[in-house]
Every structure is written in structure tokens, then in C-alpha cells.
């Protein structure tokens, strides 16, 4: 009799286990998500995650999906709740809108495509589910988005000052003097997982991973890319300086039409001999 009770109990426990493993059980860490008036449903997001995300990001959200070994750069590990493209200060969680924008935009030059074809509700549901992978979402609130001041005119003075900052702050050591991502330190860079990481190649790229606008680029300086060697310069760069850097970086993009590049090319025509090479002082030391 005792044996049959044990077996019966085992079966009940097994059935309970099956029930737990079956979709429909409320997620313990559901903190929700809200974007543009839409409220995310983590339970629905779980199904969507299985359909679209699990191959790379993994069932546990740890970036160890079955395709992950073949994906470069590696998929995001959601269990760390560490996100690169944010509107919030470094070290803080991104807003739901930030995650929504990344999902919608995709990450150019990686295997993360744009998910714009999904309905807005599906994208918000996915965010709600992604947030269940890390307890940080329960203990911390998203950071407050930084304020982006209006962009000043793209003048040659702004470009030249930005160029000077690019040189002084040694941005070129990673991004290279021509912005090709081939600076002397580039080869040594790794992300927080110890994986090699390449600085952005402004020369070849037309879209940034953080977006396409000057404001998106501005945000990068002020928020940093958490989990990468790209720090936040919020404490050392004034807003005007950051805009000047943005304007200079636009001159490094031959495949993108911009006012900054136009004024720069005009300047180069008349000041060819006066332009000091970036990184020249360090090279001479």
C-alpha cells in the first residue's frame, strides 16, 4: 500500500511538473512593459519569444540559443539586464521605449533584424517577457532619459572643434584616425563577456546601431554603451562639445549626405596644407 501511495504521489508530482512546464502558468517575475499606451503581456510575449527570439537568445534568455555559436556579435544576454542602446545614464536600466526602439530598428550589421513587421503589441509583449529574465527589473527602476538639447547649426567651427575633441580624447585610438574602426587599440577591445568587439566603422557604415539621426549619436556619448569599452562622457563633455563631435563624425561618412560633411569638404579644399593629421602628436611621442 505504501508503495502504491508513493507511486501515486510521484504521478501527482509529475503531473504538477507537466502543468508547470505548460504555457499558461503566470510568470513570477512579470514586471510588465508599457510603450505608447500599449501594455505588454509577458505570457503572450513568451510565445512570441519562442517563435522569434529563442534561436539566438536562448530559452533562458542568456544569449546561448542554438544558433548563438554562429552569431557574431553574440546575442544579448538578457539575464544581465545590461543594454547598450539606451536613453538613460550609464549603469541604469533602459526604458521600455528604448527596448522597443531597438527591437523595431534591429541592429545593423548584425544578425538582429528589424522587427517592424511585428505588430506594436507583439513587440511590447516581447519586452515584458524579456524583462522576466533578470531580477534587476524587479529591484531597480529604469533610468531617467537624458535631456538632449537642440542641435546647433552644423558649421565648420563646430566640425573643427569636434575634430579637435576626437583627437584630444583619443577616440581615434579605437575608431581610427579616419573612423574606419582600425585604431591601434581596436584589436585589443573586448566586451563585458570577454568577447572581441570592433569599434564602429564610420567610414563604411551608413546607419548606426543606435539609430540613424544625429540625436541618436549624441545619446551614445552621454549614455555610453554599457557592456562595451565605449564609456559615457556625460561627466566630461558639455552638450555643445558633444554636438561638435557628432558633427565631426558625420564628416567621416562618405556614403551619407550631411551638412557637416559638405562644410568640411569645402574647408579641406582651401586649407589642405593646414590640417593636422589626427593622432599625430601621439605618434610623435
Amino acid at each position: 500500500m505504501a508503495l502504491s501511495k508513493k507511486i501515486t504521489r510521484s504521478l501527482i508530482l509529475a503531473a504538477f511538473g507537466v502543468a508547470l512546464a505548460t504555457p499558461g502558468v503566470t510568470l513570477a517575475q512579470d514586471t510588465g512593459a508599457s510603450v505608447n499606451g500599449l501594455t505588454g503581456n509577458a505570457e503572450a510575449g513568451k510565445q512570441d519569444y519562442r517563435r522569434w527570439c529563442v534561436g539566438c537568445h536562448g530559452k533562458e534568455g542568456n544569449g546561448e540559443g542554438e544558433n548563438a555559436p554562429y552569431v557574431d556579435p553574440r546575442p544579448r544576454d538578457f539575464t544581465e539586464a545590461l543594454f547598450r542602446w539606451r536613453s538613460t545614464p550609464t549603469g541604469t536600466l533602459p526604458t521600455d521605449q528604448d527596448l522597443y526602439d531597438t527591437i523595431t530598428r534591429g541592429v545593423v550589421d548584425t544578425l538582429m533584424p528589424t522587427w517592424r513587421p511585428l505588430t506594436p503589441q507583439t513587440r511590447v509583449d516581447l519586452i515584458a517577457y524579456i524583462k522576466t529574465f533578470s531580477p534587476k527589473w524587479q529591484t531597480q527602476k529604469a533610468g531617467t532619459p537624458i535631456t538632449i538639447p537642440p542641435e546647433p547649426p552644423q558649421t565648420i567651427d563646430s566640425v573643427l572643434h569636434g575634430r579637435q575633441l576626437f583627437d584630444q580624447m583619443q577616440c581615434w585610438k579605437c575608431h581610427g584616425p579616419d573612423g574606419r574602426g582600425d585604431g591601434p587599440s581596436a584589436i585589443t577591445l573586448t566586451d563585458d563577456k570577454g568577447e572581441p568587439i570592433r569599434p564602429y566603422n564610420f567610414h563604411d557604415g551608413t546607419r548606426f546601431r543606435c539609430g540613424e539621426t544625429n540625436s541618436d549619436l549624441y545619446k551614445i556619448f552621454m549614455t555610453g554603451l554599457d557592456g562595451t569599452p565605449m564609456p559615457s562622457f556625460a561627466d566630461s563633455l558639455k552638450p555643445q562639445d558633444a554636438w561638435d563631435l557628432v558633427h565631426f563624425l558625420r564628416t567621416l561618412q562618405p556614403n551619407v549626405q550631411s551638412q557637416s560633411r559638405t562644410v568640411w569638404l569645402e574647408y579641406v579644399k582651401t586649407h589642405q596644407g593646414q590640417i593636422k593629421a589626427i593622432g599625430a602628436e601621439s605618434a610623435g611621442q
Binding site: R51, W52, V54, G55, C56, N67, V71, L111, P113
Partner: peptide, 8 residues
């Protein structure tokens, strides 16, 4: 080619 699940 893309490392995405078929269900994508």
C-alpha cells in the same frame, strides 16, 4: 544563413 528559427 541568418541563424533565425523557421518560426520567425
Amino acid at each position: 544563413k541568418y541563424g533565425l528559427p523557421c518560426s520567425a
